[in-house]
Each structure stands twice: as C-alpha cells, then as structure tokens.
Amino acid sequence: MSNVCEDHIFSKVFKTHSKTVFNYIFYKFGNEEKAHDAVQEAFVKLWQNCAKVSPEKAKSYVYTVANNLYLNVIKAEKVRLKHANSLSNDRTNESPEFLMEEKEYKVKLDNALNALPENQRTTFLLNRIDGKKYTEIAEIEGVSVKAIEKRMHLALKSLREEIDGI
C-alpha cells in the first residue's frame, strides 16, 4: 500500500499539484504571497494527516485545505498575469499601430479578468492557463461539470462584453 507519508510519494504529489494549488489561490485572490502560503499550509496539513489521506484523495484534500484557508479572509486583489511575448515574437514587420492595439487589448483583458466574479475567473484561468479540463476543475471546485461549463460560458461572455464595450 502506497502511503502519502512516504517521502517519495509525498514529493510526487507535491510536484504534481503544488503549482495548480498556487495558481488556484492566486486566481481567486490575486495575492501571490498568500498563494505561496496556501501551498505550504495545505501540504503541511497533508503531511500531518498523511496516514488518513490516501494518495488518490490527496489532490482534492490539498485544494480543499487551501480554499478553506482563506475563505472570507482576504479580499480579492488584482490578478496580475504575465503576458507571453509569443504574439509579437513570431511576427516581424509589425506596425506601431498594431503594437499599440495589442498593448491596449492586454490592458482591457486584464481589467476584464479582474472584473469577473471570483469563481468564474478561477475556473476560466485554470482552463486557459493551466489547461485543466472541465471535469478536473469541477473536482477541484467540488461542483458539477455543468456548473463549470456555465461559469466558462458566462466568463467568456462577460470578457467579450467588457473588452468590446458592449
């Protein structure tokens, strides 16, 4: 029987899920420091209760702990995401006007993301940045896949409306 108390299993669980736990908390609250702390706290709890938590349950366990940690505690700050430069890198002859528009678009996108309700933003970014499938997000959030699809749909709709100024 594999056990989370075993160092290599614990390390594996940590490496697999810590980044997503970090992002998950960051998308929720926009606070990097708290996201780092959440990872530490969630996995310390997992370590302390390693005998009671099976490796299969470890994943949802750390998300639940991380989520409960800051429930109603911190106010959401602005989620500051990094924008990869791929768009401008793979093209050469770009007009200053195009670059300007790109920059403006990014600002609009950031603002629109920050304007989303916390659960829609978290779901949306877990999918877009972390590439999490709807089923996986549903597991993390503890809701149905249908609810996640609803959030995705509403998030896209709101983002477009916010950016296009509809």
Binding site: K19, N23, V39, L81, K82
Partner: peptide
C-alpha cells in the same frame, strides 16, 4: 479572446 488568453501566464512558481 481565445488566442490572447492562451498565452497568459500565472506568476512564477
């Protein structure tokens, strides 16, 4: 939106 958000990145971890 799809294109723009696919190149987004979270803070380094």
């Amino acid at each position: 939106l799809k294109d723009a958000t696919s190149s987004l990145k979270a803070p380094d971890f």
